[in-house]
């Protein structure tokens, strides 16, 4: 079982300087330390922004001063360098004095594409849910949407509130993804010392009992325990209501069914305000 746990060798955290991504980084660092995994911080210089500066009418509006001004490519590049540098320093501060292998890399391109490319080798991708969206936009952006739909491995979509220590929830349906999810959920709760709640997603109560026995045995091997809830044929509404009433932390969600993919998955992520770890 220890072997299975150590299958997460590399964690990639997508960083754009938003509070959400910094919070994801803090959590990623804890997890990497716990799993003895390598941590990679990725900053993408958005090619779309650079392209926009080449358009003759592009003007930048500042949030903190009146008027707008022409944004030149050179200046934008300088701004991006400064932003990347700031993110790098934050990462250095967070990883400082941790027994951790960490590196920071900057790439240029389409943000979602570059994240998908960089995360090919990563066992776990972490990214903030909201990114540097417009003021008041709590919903997740197009980058996250694109990544979660397209990425095949484990992706943890971090929410700002995830910084609070709350029990980790695992939706367990007995699938292979759910098995992987159990290991990660266990590690996650260990890194936060927050406890584990397992939602046994089953067709019937009897199936739920079986799943419970299965999870209990696996946890026994890991030296852990959990609180169990049985959800018989739950829909999204049931799941989100349960999460809110539990005052739960991150939820580990296996994505082996059709309804937990594509636009369904995006809708679910919109609804859930907890950090979500998608296990495919």
């Amino acid at each position: 079982m220890e072997k299975q746990m150590s299958s997460i060798k590399q964690i990639l955290v997508a960083l754009d300087g938003s509070q959400s991504s910094i919070s994801a980084l803090e959590s990623g660092v804890k997890l990497a330390v716990r799993l003895n995994a390598e941590l990679v911080g990725l900053f993408v210089e958005d090619i779309n922004l650079l392209r926009a500066t080449q358009l003759p009418f592009t003007q930048e509006i500042s949030m903190f001063s009146s008027g707008y001004r022409r944004l030149e490519a050179l200046e934008l590049e300088r701004q991006l360098r400064v932003q990347a540098d700031r993110v790098r320093r934050i990462m250095e501060r967070i990883t400082h004095a941790k027994n951790l292998s960490a590196r920071f890399q900057v790439v240029r391109g389409s943000v979602a594409e570059e994240i998908l490319i960089a995360s090919k080798d990563a066992d776990l991708l972490m990214l903030g849910k909201t990114g540097r969206s417009l003021p008041g936009f709590g919903r997740f952006g197009s980058t996250v949407r694109s990544v979660v739909v397209r990425r095949p491995g484990m992706t943890l979509v971090w929410h700002l509130d995830g910084a609070a220590i709350r029990p980790v929830v695992l939706a367990y349906d007995g699938s292979e993804s759910a098995g992987k999810g159990l290991l990660v959920a266990f590690s996650l709760q260990e890194s936060q010392d927050s406890g584990l709640i397992v939602y046994l997603v089953a067709e019937s109560q009897e199936k739920g009992h079986e799943l419970r026995l299965e999870v209990s045995n696996k946890l026994k091997e890991l030296g852990g325990c959990a609180t169990f809830r049985t959800l018989v044929r739950p829909d999204f509404a049931n799941l989100t209501w349960m999460l809110r009433s539990e005052n739960a932390g991150p939820i580990v969600l296996p994505c082996n069914q059709k309804r937990v993919s594509g636009e369904h998955l995006c809708s679910l992520l919109e609804e859930i305000t907890n950090p979500v770890l998608l296990v495919k």
Partner: peptide, 25 residues
């Protein structure tokens, strides 16, 4: 589409989620 720059916001024409290239203009 509105795009966030490190210091503010810009509006740019987009096509398939990508900002149009200058030569397309």
């Amino acid at each position: 589409a509105p795009l966030r720059t490190p210091a503010g916001l810009i509006f740019a024409p987009v096509k398939d989620g990508e900002v149009v290239r200058p030569d397309e203009l």
